Simulated assay, not measured.
Amino acid sequence: MYFVLCVLVVFLTSACANGVTSSGSQNELSEPYRLALDELISTDTALNENIEYISLDFDKELPLEDSDKQSIERYLHNKFNVKIYNLTYEQLVKEELYDQGGTTLKGILLKIEKQEQSDNKNSITIEVTKYRSNQGALSAKVTLTYQDGQWKIVNKIPTSES
């Protein structure tokens, strides 16, 4: 009887752990932000040449927890193997993280301007900006939907490019 009870406890514990892991990853709030940033980084790759860092500037109104921000930072660090900062443009300039007389950053500044959640909780639009210099910047509205257990980009509308 004791053996059957132990097997049952192990089975239930493993099932609960799997349920928590999969539901947490499905609903992880950082995933649509990572996808939107990744999409913008892959646009105009010339802006990415020889970058020394990526700086993330999150709008304070975004519904992101510190753990979501850290997840985004880890993802970008692992993918691009550069230092990740959380500095605004002004802070990057103050830290002297620029080239060519202060006109071009040594890295790229990614700014998440805002997000709009539609009435459908499975759809979100995120406004993101990628900045390297006054002649090297772009922004877009990226719309994502949650389908088949994952977030997918369904539309990207460029809003500015220089």
Rank of each mutant, 00 (worst) to 15 (best):
M1R: 07
Y2W: 09
Y2K: 08
F3T: 11
V4C: 02
C6W: 11
L8K: 04
V9P: 00
V10H: 02
V10G: 03
V10D: 04
F11A: 15
F11I: 15
L12S: 12
T13G: 07
T13A: 13
A15D: 10
C16D: 14
S23T: 15
S23L: 11
S25N: 11
Q26G: 05
Q26L: 13
E28V: 09
S30I: 05
P32G: 03
L35F: 05
L35T: 08
L37R: 00
I41L: 13
S42I: 09
T45F: 02
A46R: 09
A46I: 15
A46S: 12
A46E: 14
A46M: 10
N48E: 10
N50E: 13
N50Y: 08
I51T: 03
E52G: 12
E52W: 06
E52Y: 07
D57C: 03
D57Y: 11
K60C: 04
E61S: 15
L62T: 08
L62V: 10
P63I: 11
L64W: 06
D66I: 12
K69S: 05
I72R: 00
E73H: 04
E73D: 13
E73I: 11
Y75K: 02
K79C: 05
N81E: 14
V82Q: 01
K83Y: 07
N86Y: 14
L87C: 05
T88V: 09
T88K: 04
E90M: 08
Q91R: 09
K94R: 12
Y98H: 13
D99N: 14
D99T: 15
Q100R: 12
T103I: 12
T104H: 02
I108R: 00
L109A: 02
L109H: 01
K111R: 14
K114Q: 11
E116A: 06
S118E: 15
S118Q: 13
D119Q: 09
N120I: 13
K121V: 13
N122E: 14
S123E: 15
I124C: 01
T125C: 00
I126S: 00
E127W: 10
V128W: 02
Y131L: 04
S133E: 05
N134K: 09
G136I: 07
L138I: 12
S139H: 02
A140W: 05
T143D: 03
L144P: 01
Y146M: 07
W151S: 02
W151D: 02
I153G: 01
N155L: 13
N155Q: 14
N155W: 06
K156A: 09
K156W: 02
P158R: 02
T159R: 01
T159H: 00
S160V: 07
S160M: 06
E161F: 09
E161P: 00
E161H: 06
